[in-house]
Amino acid sequence: MIISLLKVVTAEDKTMHLNAEMELEEFRTKAGRFPIIEKEPVEFVIRHVKNRQVLISGKTKVVISIPCDRCLKEVPYEFLIEFEKDVNLNELNQSEAHDETAEEKNYIDGYNLDVDKLLYNEILIGWPMKILCCEDCKGICNVCGQNLNEGTCDCEDTSLDPRMSVIRDVFKNFKEV
């Protein structure tokens, strides 16, 4: 969804309150595609600060289905997004398009605010380092792929590190005694 900032920028001390729908249906990264299960409208407050400078704040909730890092079971992960952006439209519209400010504010094009790009950036910043379906997730068997949380498998555990063979032999010797 695109929101026009023209009404706010042209009037002194103008404040605009509005709700906007997020149009994204899935979150795409180089790591894959993650479906958006639930999304709430974004509550925006856009305020004119001074000469073509606006303060954009908002909040929303988005739930994305992300696979567990150990067992690959889909886990709904809730993002509570709150942001406050200070945008100077004078700096963005100058000829230096490759400036850091322009790259950080890729959700502004002229006087238009792209809600989906803004939320995409916020989700990307808040993306978790590790997702687990539960604290004691056992993962999957690396031989047959059985989810070890749902049951055991009859695979032989041959994946021991060869550097640990000496220690394994010591334990075997103590078992025989």
Rank of each mutant, 00 (worst) to 15 (best):
L5C: 03
E21K: 13
L92R: 14
F83R: 12
D13Y: 10
D154Q: 12
F79S: 12
E12A: 10
F27Y: 15
S159I: 08
N142D: 11
D169I: 00
V166H: 14
D116I: 02
D154P: 03
K7F: 01
R47A: 04
I2V: 13
E38P: 00
T15A: 09
R52H: 12
T152Y: 10
D99P: 00
G126T: 08
R33H: 09
E43I: 01
D114T: 04
D69R: 11
V63S: 10
S95F: 10
N147T: 06
I36R: 13
V75P: 03
T10P: 02
I64M: 08
K14T: 08
S165Q: 15
K7N: 14
S95M: 08
Y111D: 11
R70G: 00
C141R: 11
E84V: 05
V75H: 04
K14C: 09
F27E: 03
C133Q: 10
C141S: 05
E74S: 06
I167D: 11
I131D: 05
K85H: 10
V54S: 01
V62I: 15
Y107N: 06
R52E: 13
L89D: 08
L124A: 13
I56L: 02
L24Y: 07
V54W: 01
C71F: 09
H98D: 12
G151I: 00
E96M: 03
L92N: 12
E176H: 07
M22W: 06
Q53W: 04
N88A: 04
V54F: 03
K105F: 08
V49N: 02
H48P: 00
K59V: 01
L72H: 09
L160I: 13
I167Q: 14
N90F: 02
K73C: 02
E74D: 10
L5D: 01
D69Y: 07
K73G: 02
M16F: 07
D116C: 03
I108P: 05
N88Q: 03
G32D: 11
A20N: 09
F171G: 00
F44V: 01
E150P: 07
N90S: 05
S57T: 07
E96Y: 13
N88D: 13
E74K: 08
K130W: 04
V115Y: 09
G139R: 13
G126N: 15
I37R: 15
Y107C: 03
L89Y: 09
C71Q: 13
A20Y: 06
A102F: 09
N106V: 04
T158Q: 14
E104F: 03
M164Y: 14
G32S: 12
E96K: 14
R28W: 02
I123M: 15
Q146R: 13
S4Q: 08
N173S: 12
V177M: 08
E91I: 07
C137N: 11
R70K: 15
E156G: 04
M16L: 11
D161G: 07
R168A: 12
V115I: 06
